[in-house]
Simulated assay, not measured.
Amino acid sequence: MTDNEASVVDESTFSVRRTIRIAASLDKVWQAVTEPEYISRWFGQTVLDGAGVGATGTMTFPDYGSIPLRVEARDEPNLIAYRWGNDDALGGPTADLEGGSTVFTFTLEEVAGGTQLTVFETGFDNTSDPIANLESHRTGWDEELDKLVALLEGAS
C-alpha cells in the first residue's frame, strides 16, 4: 500500500487538508469518491438522490448515525465537493446542512503511476467547537483515506 503523509490542520483558516497518492487510475478514484455504492465501501454508508450539483442524501456511520449530505460542486473527473452536517460538539449531525456544516472537496489529478487526491475541508469556524472539530476530522481523514488507498490498490 502506498504510504502517504497525514492530514494537516490550519487553525488560521479553520481547514483540514490531506494529499495522497493512489496507485489506481483517475477513473477508478473518481468512481470511488462519487458513486454511493463505492463510497460506502471505504467511507460511510452513502445514499444520494442523484449525481449532480444539488443532489442530496445521507452518509451513515456506525455509532454515529446518519449525516445529511449535499453535492456542492462537480467537475468530472477532477473535482467534487460535498456539504455535510456534522457539528460533533452539538452531539452529532445537523438536520438542515446549515449551522455546523462543513464542505469537503476532493480534487483529483492524474500523476505517474496513478492518481493524486487532495481532500480540503472548510467551514469549521461555523461549528460550536472549531478546534475540537478540526482535530476530529484530521484523524478521520487519515483513517478514511487510508481505507480508500487500501481498497483501490487492492483492486488495481
Rank of each mutant, 00 (worst) to 15 (best):
N4P: 00
S7C: 03
V8R: 00
V8D: 00
V9Y: 00
E11M: 02
E11I: 05
T13V: 09
T13R: 05
T13E: 04
F14M: 03
S15C: 04
V16F: 00
R18K: 13
T19G: 09
T19D: 01
R21G: 15
R21F: 06
A24M: 09
S25N: 07
L26F: 05
L26Q: 12
A32N: 04
V33W: 01
P36H: 03
P36M: 05
P36L: 06
E37P: 02
Y38N: 15
Y38R: 15
Y38E: 15
I39S: 02
S40R: 03
R41P: 02
W42M: 09
Q45Y: 10
Q45G: 12
T46R: 01
G50H: 09
G50I: 12
A51N: 14
A51V: 14
G52F: 04
G52W: 01
V53D: 06
V53G: 01
V53W: 10
G54N: 14
A55S: 15
T56Q: 15
T56L: 10
T58N: 12
P62S: 13
P62D: 15
D63Y: 06
D63R: 07
Y64G: 13
Y64K: 06
S66M: 08
S66L: 14
P68F: 05
P68Q: 13
R70Y: 00
V71H: 09
V71G: 02
A73V: 08
A73E: 14
R74C: 10
D75G: 07
P77C: 04
L79K: 11
I80W: 05
I80M: 09
R83F: 02
R83A: 14
R83N: 08
G85K: 03
N86Y: 09
N86C: 15
D87V: 08
D87W: 04
D87G: 13
D88P: 07
A89K: 08
L90E: 10
L90F: 05
G91I: 08
G92M: 09
A95F: 08
D96C: 06
G99L: 12
S101Y: 03
T102M: 01
V103E: 01
F104C: 02
F106A: 08
